[in-house]
Design a protein around this nucleic acid. Structure first.
Lengths: 247, 247
DNA sequence: CGAGCTTTTGAACGCAGTCAACAATTGTGG
DNA sequence: CCACAATTGTTGACTGCGTTCAAAAGCTCG
């Protein structure tokens, strides 16, 4: 629940540190955040639309998605989150959840009470800035997804999604080179790209046929990253992984 | 450039005040923000992707959009902004712009230097929270647009967009009852909903034929708000216009 | 080894895109 | 104030990407 490089917050701290170069004191304050560790499975939401949570959740293991449903029950996934992410940091300032969060693979998450988050923010303005920045990167990813879903065709959309996922996993050290684990059904990928699951199946076959991806069980390998990025018009700028040079 | 209820910042201050009940001191600090007023026309970006701005822009009059282009030049509009909004608050924390902002009608905007924004944030933590919250609402709108574009058909998308616009204009007192001005080409609306401009034309005709909207020049009237909301599956929760009750 | 998912395949359909032409409107300069 | 240019809106015909429905094949796991 506290100290050590293996505190549950380690990944999140490393991520913030890589951008903000935290001081020892700031790092320690983050390590000291009380975290309640829970496991979650794909059959139940972690948080649901309409909830008024008093905590935010930090992904520790596995993947989650942010989604909403239409009246007819069609699901749109708006974001995928990987370990180190806090998908609902927003509930710190917006009382009512306007979306749901669900695991898309078996997960462990760490729940952090808002009062504790508010407390570190109050004491360390740079942590406020760091958290704020994280939510701004989330928004940037939403924008790129809007471009992806609104203006690209299915084949490119999927290529783009795979590029993003690979790069984000690389950033937190969860992908070995060009191979990563994607323990997720095609229906999930379809809901994340705004197409039907039948069509997603055909798109994946096309990507395989074109040699852009290889799959083995849930493992995905990208033999030629550049080719996949080209197919998906992928430019990592929007991920803001580093502040390439100052203003 | 400063005081009075008619300072350029008035709309923005009123918006923040309605949620946060600012103190006199906080209000005054916002009024004192130096603002450089500029006019802008639809033929040129206010900020462009790749820029590293040292200021953010506050919309004073007219409407702007946030957009990106695909390699083939297809445009996706990700957000519309109305007076009182700050579409690029994010550049306070993200050095490089990952999108462009363009007027979609003749505009006046107020440019505010980042250093001044940082200064008020440092002195007034509640203003930090208020600005942060604004960016979180932007993100919420992106999510709703993702659902709209990813999972609804063109007719509903447009109905939804009109509902959102009407409600946001009402919130800042820029719509008379159920009529508002939308001085925007159909191509813009098409780019905001992810459809072609030809199809947008047909959708608008259908909405007119069904009595959901009436148009006169650039004026749009919504005779039956409920019916339009139903057609667009519009639920204003995601706009977070008020914190309906405490947690 | 069987139940329940998930993936795959085929066929028919439909929403929306594209292209091209024309009409209406707006803006501009004389 | 009119004539002309440029932009915007409208219409029709054709095409196609992706959906839907249904069924079969493959996996996973108790």
């Amino acid at each position: 629940m506290t100290a050590g490089p293996h505190s549950p917050n380690a990944l999140m701290i490393r991520k913030l540190d890589s951008i903000f170069s935290l001081s020892d004191e700031e790092r320690q304050a983050l390590r000291d955040l009380p975290v309640q560790v829970k496991t979650a499975t794909t059959d139940r939401d972690i948080v649901s639309i309409g909830d008024r949570p008093s905590q935010s959740c930090l992904i520790l293991e596995g993947f989650t998605c942010v989604y909403k449903l239409t009246y007819e029950g069609k699901r749109q996934i708006m974001a995928l989150h990987v370990p180190g992410d806090i998908p609902d940091m927003q509930s710190l300032h917006l009382k009512v959840m306007d979306f749901s969060i669900s695991p898309i693979s078996p997960c462990t998450v760490g729940l952090i009470q808002h009062e504790h988050l508010r407390d570190v923010c109050e004491r360390y303005p740079r942590i406020t800035a760091a958290f704020w920045r994280e939510t701004l990167v989330d928004a940037s990813i939403y924008r790129e997804w809007l471009l992806n879903i609104g203006r690209r065709e299915a084949y490119s959309r999927m290529a783009h999604l795979l590029c993003e996922f690979l790069m984000r996993l690389n950033a937190v050290g969860l992908a070995e080179g060009d191979t990563f684990d994607l323990p997720v059904t095609q229906a999930v990928l379809a809901d994340a790209t705004g197409i039907s699951s039948v069509h997603m199946n055909r798109v994946i076959q096309a990507l395989r046929a074109d040699g852009l991806i290889q799959t083995l069980k849930t493992q995905v390998t990208v033999p030629d990253r550049e080719k996949l990025q080209e197919a998906g018009e992928f430019d990592p700028l929007y991920l803001h992984l580093k502040e390439s040079g100052a203003a």
